[in-house]
Amino acid sequence: METSDNMENTEKKKLTAENLILIIAGAFILVFLAYYSIMMSMGPAKKLKEIEAGYGVKHDSEEKTDERLFTDSAYVSMLKEKSFLQSKITMAGTDSIYMTLNIPDSTAHLEIAGVSVHSVRISGMKISKILRTGNNYAIQTMLASPMTIVNYIATIKKEPLMIKMAPKDTSEFKPDVTPDTSDYEPVNYILDMDNGLRIFVYQEVADSANSDRNSLFFFDLNDRLKTTWQSIKSVAVLKVPEYHPYIKIRVPKADAKILYRAIPRKGQIAVYI
């Protein structure tokens, strides 16, 4: 009887210790989540400050800008138009292929030296709040200079190169057969721009296309995991994680492929918001 009581007591103590560990771990996780959320929510404001510092009204410059002008929608609208044109003219000066995104018109264009060579209808889009409601002057000035792609992640190859070994003699030679042009690969990609903006291009997904939907889910999850890991690393050293304003667009699969394959690796993009 005594032995049984001892066993029960030991088990109770063990349970209490386990509970204590669980409570401490839970509390630690909750504190971390709260801290992480606070640090993350400071990201957009920090980014906006950076944009304003780099592109906003310079109060110490000799040429004074009347800030009241930015409260007038007609003036802001003209400013946007001018910024977009300015970007396009700069890019047209090169012989390279570039992309223009016209958000109000829901169109994307591929252009070469000022000539539109391909137009795409955007069927869906999502834009960072910072770009829609931030300081208009600073945002427009930032967009006035063309953005350059610094990095990209994609589900398809930029150049689908096939390697073929030359035959040693005519007996080894096989004439080319019809190439495989089947279009089964999902087309989703992310373009990281030099000013911190991220452009997500997703293919349209038909209701029946489960594999395409799954592919997009894992592509998106993979990017979220990478971004979260970077944020956790920043938070761990008491730094506000870097916030990247984004533009997410959904276009037909064929067009998504054309845009991706046409834009050079360090290609340029102009955005009209």
Binding site: S37, M40, S41, G43, P44, A45, L48, F70, T71, D72, S73, V76, S128, K129, I130, T133, G134, N135, N136, Y137, Y243
Partner: peptide, 12 residues
Amino acid sequence: LQEMKGVRKTVL
């Protein structure tokens, strides 16, 4: 949540 939190905006 980052997208929900308001950023200072220019009021038209």
